[in-house]
Simulated scan of single mutants.
Amino acid sequence: MITSLFDLTGRVALVTGGNKGLGKAMARGLAEAGADVIIASRHEDQLREAIQEITAGTGRRGAYHVADVGKREDLLRLARFALDTFGHVDILINNAGMNIPQPIDAITDDVWDRMLAVNLTSAMVLSRELVPQMKARRWGRIVHISSILGQVSKEKRNAYSATKAALMGLARASAIDLGPYNITVNCIAPGPFLTDMPMSLLSEAEKQAFAQRTALGRWAEPRELVGPVLLLCSEAGSYITGQTLFVDGGWLAR
Rank of each mutant, 00 (worst) to 15 (best):
K156P: 04
F193C: 13
A189M: 07
T163I: 08
G179Y: 00
Y160D: 02
S153G: 15
S161Y: 07
I183G: 05
N186V: 11
L178A: 03
K164L: 05
Y181P: 01
F193Q: 08
I188R: 03
K156W: 14
E155I: 12
T184K: 07
P192A: 05
S174Q: 15
G169C: 06
P180T: 09
G169S: 13
G150W: 06
Y160T: 03
K154R: 08
P192K: 04
E155S: 11
E155V: 11
G179I: 00
A166S: 15
F193D: 12
D177S: 11
S161L: 02
A189K: 00
A175E: 03
L178W: 10
D177L: 10
P192R: 03
R157I: 00
G150R: 09
I183E: 09
Y181G: 04
L194W: 03
F193W: 07
R172S: 11
G191H: 01
E155T: 07
R172V: 01
R172K: 14
A165T: 12
F193K: 14
K154S: 11
S174K: 05
A162H: 02
L194Y: 07
K154M: 06
V185M: 07
A162T: 15
V152L: 14
T184F: 08
S161N: 02
N158F: 14
C187K: 03
A171L: 02
A162E: 02
P180H: 11
I183H: 03
A173V: 14
Q151W: 07
T163H: 13
E155K: 10
